[in-house]
């Protein structure tokens, strides 16, 4: 049963992945990607990690919806209305990715993987939670900071007003013409 479901999810994932780059319209590409990543979540679920599987699926859904909003915002051919080939250097990319695929699969089959050690705990979610909150606390902290930094950086980058506007063209106006009044010494 597990093998069959794995096979199914795998084939669907690969098909959706290929579809992402095959279809013209951005929207269809987005949903193909969603499909592929949902199958990935399913595979993880099947492999005994229900919590992580569900988390992956949830995140993918959110991302794809956001991506759809961007498609509309930037009018990037949302519905295949303006077919344009966004590809360049296809042969080079194909060659490299085929080479990578070949070397990876070669490695998979050539390396004599060690035997399984230990058995999966009863509750894998508890295992990852205890690990994150225990031994891997450093990873948890780092991830936390990374996420925070990403939020700040993404916001700053995306703002229409740069952080230097208030200082004028030659960057040395004193005091700065700050649209949002207040601040030190003003």
């Amino acid at each position: 049963m597990e093998a069959v479901s794995l096979w199914g999810l795998g084939v669907v994932a690969l098909a959706c992945a290929v579809a992402v780059f095959a279809c013209d319209s951005m929207a269809r590409a987005t949903f193909a990607l969603l499909g592929s990543l949902v199958c990935v979540g399913g595979v993880v679920f099947v492999l005994g990690l229900p919590y992580l599987g569900v988390v992956t699926v949830l995140m993918m859904v959110m991302e794809m919806v956001v991506m759809a909003v961007f498609m509309v915002a930037y009018m990037m051919n949302p519905a295949g209305l303006m077919p344009m080939s966004m590809l360049h250097n296809k042969r080079g990319a194909l060659g490299i990715s085929a080479a990578v695929f070949a070397s990876l699969t070669g490695a998979v089959f050539l390396v004599d993987w060690p035997q399984r050690r230990g058995s999966p705990p009863r509750d894998t979610t508890f295992q990852v939670g205890k690990a994150l909150m225990g031994g891997q606390m450093l990873t948890m902290v780092v991830l936390g900071f990374v996420l925070l930094a990403t939020m700040v950086a993404a916001t700053v980058l995306a703002l229409h007003r740069g952080r230097y506007d208030r200082l004028g063209d030659d960057l040395d106006r004193c005091p700065a013409r700050d649209p949002a009044g207040g601040g030190v010494g003003r």
Binding site: L14, A17, F21, M26, A29, L47, L87, A93, V100, V108
Partner: peptide
């Protein structure tokens, strides 16, 4: 499953290398 992972990885790589649009 590892081959599946490699396949996904390679398709993604192909996409990253060949696409012009940043989103793609």
């Amino acid at each position: 499953v590892l081959v599946l992972a490699a396949g996904l990885f390679s398709v993604g790589l192909f996409g990253a290398l060949s696409q012009q649009s940043i989103v793609m």
